[in-house]
Amino acid sequence: MMSRYALWVLLAPGVGFLILLFGLPLGMALLTSIGLGTVGVNTGFTLDHYAELFSNSIYLDGLRYSLFLSVVPTLVSLTIAMPLAVALQSTFPGKKLFSTLYRVPLVVPGIVAAFIVMILFDRGGEISRILKPLGLGLPKMVRDEWSLGIIIAVAWKAVPFMMLIIGGSLASISTDLPAAARTLGANRATVFWRIELPLALPGITAAVLLVFVGFTGAFAVPLLLGPIYPKRLSVWMYEASYQENNRGLASAMGIVLSVIACAVLVIYYRVTSDLRNAAGGEVR
């Protein structure tokens, strides 16, 4: 058996990294947000920063908008990625070409994706120019109220990522299982809902969580393609921190975002475990 010290030595690089670069800043942010800051002005214990955050409508709008831009693109990406990942399990003409091409967005930086969307979908963009002679026009898609441009840009990158993970977990299901279900009287749709989906759920969960976390922190794409108002809470954080030097408020925003992210994870796990039960038994 490995000695306790050896175990700690082996764990140290990984755990130490987490504590140092994740735990420590989070702890400092928590302290700063209640006025016990080591970074900002130390005012003594106060909940003023949270009070300001939850009473000022521009911050509440920012919070709502942040949530919108985390949840909606995740759902949109999942809705697109899921059927494609399923389709890629079967053979069809041109599959090889498709499986190569769909990965291209993975290597394109997000900011480039944002510019692509801007060039294509903005008023006076390429698509508008093509449509104009036909008497057609695009709705406002860049800096618009519903953030269509942002959703397109981030989903364009997230869809192949999700397909890769979900496709991997679908491919790991033995082909005998759907076949067995078919011989027992299940049609294709039932096989998907009762066999493939529950068994691929760990992969789907992972894909959704990773993409969701990525969207929560997205900064550049919303800045480029988002509307003037509302601004994401992350953008307000940046302004509070660097333009108004109000570290306490910025930290409070950060803590609120972190709490929301954690809450979403908990809810998501609850929902998926219910789904697993409904689909016929506990998984693992």
């Binding site: 033995s174 005998d176 076949a179 011989t183 689909a279």
Partner: peptide, 13 residues
């Protein structure tokens, strides 16, 4: 009815 060599039991049930 088909019994598979791998048994193909549904692991989540």
């Amino acid at each position: 009815g088909l019994v598979f060599q791998s048994y193909a039991l549904f692991p989540h049930m």
